[in-house]
Design a protein around this nucleic acid. Structure first.
Lengths: 394, 394
DNA sequence: GTTATTTGTTGCGCTTGACCCCATTTCTGC
DNA sequence: GCAGAAATGGGGTCAAGCGCAACAAATAAC
């Protein structure tokens, strides 16, 4: 009789969960005082005291003297994330491998971008990650307590074991990338889809702070990635492949809006098409947005309008089904939003069930380039946040 | 400082959760023995003993002498749902109001279908429900302990307060239907979308038993309703309107597949269109399916094939985004599946990201007409299942 | 300086579940 | 047919968690 799942709840789990709750509150930010923690958790002052003491003991939080506040009563000590514990966040891309050191509270302290002149294989990427991590551990991050590695992979990642099933732009197929990195770096390593982690990062530290249900779409150079946050947690579906909005085929009301045969969202709504009209080969995100907003080329405007309408149909489908509170657009989709937010809103409204659309907002992503590193770090911190006591002795 | 949410966990909550876990295991079926409960929960035998004793005390479960089992060892007593506690399940439709008495374990013991010759207003429907409940309580359900009322409404229901925002076929708009019924019947009343509850029922007692992530689409006389189950729980989105697949607009690869201007799924894939080709005005579900499967009319076959392809596109979009393990089709969509399951699978496969489609199954719904009553009952039992001790004295 | 207010600390009590030991029942082997 | 093994249930004891209350500490207002 194997106990697949201990459904039952023991007294130990109370402690573990409360420890986790307090650490998460500190990690999520706001520099809470002990009094804040008491209010937020509903626990007793004495309990909070004991929990914070244990987290200090574990080297995960530190207490500081209270900051000056003009309020009556004994000031409450502030509880801050300990700056030492950290994780390695990794984002392999077609043109570079980026590795960062991230502390609690989404604090990206170091970042190395290793440029590539060719697309790396999983094995090569893992070796590069190993070298970069060695360099970080030898120098800038020598005094950090590295607890794990999180990988943000632009592709479909199997949730069960972190195997990259398919990363079209990298050309990877069924590669146990997480295990490759783990063997080289020697730290517990987890992987997930980059857009899912971007959604999580926006939820925790970006425009989606406090939003329980959000949909995130990121427009990259080579396609559109999507992530879904449900009940405040990243949603991965049964196997880990959820959120592939880019491969959906939205209806095109007008045949003139059809630009491709395949008709997937990422074919119809594409950065490459806009770059071509701008007459440019490549541009980074801020430059791209500046160029689009500065242009008064009618052909570009027509294409922007067309892409807004197609995107509106895709978002309408997503909103009808998922009923999110917020839709976050990143990458060049944020530019599509910045160009004419009202028009985009109208395009969505016209293709969404009115009541489902009623309370939904569309916003540009709030975090800059660090988004994926923050998401990957969150993934790596996951086990620690869920069970802080597990870091004892590490 | 208002404590919106007591994030903290106390010893009391352990008891409540364990009580809930045990009651759910009994409710979900399988007639577990105490030994089964111990194994499933991972809790101690003595703890299970205490929890079961408390549930017996609360009148929610009964213990029976062990059934003859040919196994070594002292036989374990079986724990069964107490037959007395029950809820009222209600499904108002355009042509009838159905009310049922449902016990724990999805046991539909009585059902009254009140036919209508016109579409009832919310007020009239509430009065009819009141009359039917009075009749049930006076006679067949006199010895039952009625704990609440659950309403399965064919429309958009706001999760926060059960207000029916829009029920297109009933013509209801912003009606506090749950409160109307509560005031008449005098029992705690909750409402939700019918398809969401259908999905929940299939998850708990139908073909989706044990499946954590499923999508449910029901083809009714007047449209297509959808429900989503995520992590084993019904997913409602931020406000309660999630799952409106019927109003999505899937891409039609071939203009010839386009049958309407609006292009929503429920316009393109419609029972009425098939009925017309069958030359019939109305048919109930089993008759409809028999007629479709018996027909060799090429025009009907062409339309069935067209609808399969359009449905395939919609399901492909849903699978890309939600990554469910199972898609459950009910109503005439089950007939579309029964007519040629392989063709439907192929239509979906052609429009879904291959890896996302890999492990997904499509099946016809398993529960018969009682599906909505079971789902509504589950909704009404919700508070009891979450906190069994709350029924003390009721 | 005194008082009111808020926070932190300590010790106590309550509840819970784990563990140990023994009772009870059935099945197996002789 | 009977003894012993296997499996489960029940009761008592023990450790651990949290809430509570009383007291100490720190600040603002008067």
């Amino acid at each position: 009789m194997c106990e697949v799942d201990a459904l039952g709840d023991t007294v130990d789990s109370v402690r573990r969960r409360n420890l986790s709750t307090v650490l998460e509150l500190v990690h999520r930010g706001g520099d809470p005082s002990r009094a804040d923690l008491t209010a937020r958790t509903g626990l007793n002052r004495s309990t909070i005291g004991a929990l914070v003491a244990e987290l200090v003991e574990l080297g995960l939080v530190v207490e500081t003297d209270p900051s000056a506040t003009n309020r009556v009563g004994r000031p409450s000590r502030r509880v801050l994330a300990d700056p030492r514990p950290a994780v390695i966040a990794v984002n392999p891309e077609i043109d570079a491998v980026t590795v960062g050191v991230v502390g609690l509270g989404a604090d990206v302290t170091h970042r190395i971008r290793h440029e590539l002149d060719h697309v790396a294989s999983p094995e090569e990427a893992a070796r590069i990650v190993g070298d970069l991590v060695d360099r970080l551990r030898a120098g800038p991050a020598a005094d950090r307590r590295i607890l794990g590695v999180g990988l943000a992979v632009p592709g479909l990642v199997r949730a069960a074991d972190g195997v990259v099933r398919w990363a079209p732009h990298l050309g990877w197929r069924d590669s146990p990338f997480a295990r490759l990195v783990e063997n080289i770096v020697g730290l517990p390593t987890v992987a997930d889809n980059d857009a899912t982690l971007g959604a999580l990062a926006e939820r925790l530290f970006g425009v989606g702070r406090g939003v329980d249900h959000l949909v995130y779409l990121n427009g990259g150079a080579s396609g559109i990635g999507g992530g879904v946050v449900i009940d405040g947690r990243p949603y991965r579906g049964a196997w880990g492949y959820a959120g592939e909005f880019g491969h959906n085929r939205p209806r095109l009301d007008d045949p003139a809006h059809r630009a491709t045969v395949g008709g997937t969202l990422e074919e119809e709504v594409s950065r490459a098409r806009l770059l071509e009209l701008l007459g440019r080969r490549t541009l980074d995100e801020p430059e791209f947005q500046a160029a689009v907003l500065a242009s008064d080329d009618p052909a570009l405007h027509a294409e922007l309008a067309r892409q807004q309408i197609v995107l509106g149909g895709a978002l309408g489908n997503a909103i009808n089904v998922l009923g999110p509170e917020l839709v976050v657009l990143g990458g060049f989709l944020a530019t599509l939003h910045a160009w004419d937010a009202e028009a985009l809103d109208a395009a969505v409204a016209a293709r969404t069930l009115p009541i489902a659309w009623e309370g939904t907002r569309i916003q540009a992503a709030g975090l800059a380039r660090d988004r994926l590193l923050i998401g990957a770090a969150e993934l790596a911190f996951g086990p620690v946040l869920r069970d802080p006591a597990s870091v004892a002795g590490r």
